[in-house]
Amino acid sequence: MNKSHTIRIKVNGTAYERAVEPRLLLADFLRETLGLTGTHIGCEHGICGACTVLVNGHSMRACLLFAVQLDGAEIDTVESLGTVDKLHPLQESFREHHALQCGFCTPGMLMTGVDLLRKRPLATDDEIRDGLSGNLCRCTGYEHIVAAIRTAVRERDEVSGKAVR
């Protein structure tokens, strides 16, 4: 059958060494092997974005990657952001603006949002909408998600004193 391979991988700052079947998806590895169920699976074919995590600092779809490809990689999932007691500023902004309803798309939205906030100026709402267009949300109609990211952009720019260029 499928022979296992051993990978070393850092997830949310913790180093793991695990034997994985070649066909094991990163999403399943996170959820089932490591028990990190914050990363959700909505389509398993790369469209919905619910499974978005950061791989070496870049947002990627955990349903389109095999764990075995990620030997040596650093992964950040939604669990790396804040905690129930102390939310990450973007999580706080989502809560403030009611940017989640069922919360199923939310981990993916947050990880995409974190990546966008690091890399893009997000000067206009159109740019925010464009940046989010790989993540589907069926509940919110996006209005409040855009508002939450807009607030986070403002906070980011206040801290840095200027927009990201």
């Binding site: 952001l81 939310l87 999580q91 809560r95 403030e96 989640l100």
Partner: peptide, 11 residues
């Protein structure tokens, strides 16, 4: 603000 949010936001 919603009671549900902290748990849903943090996975």
């Amino acid at each position: 603000k919603r009671v549900e949010d902290p748990r849903l936001l943090t996975g």
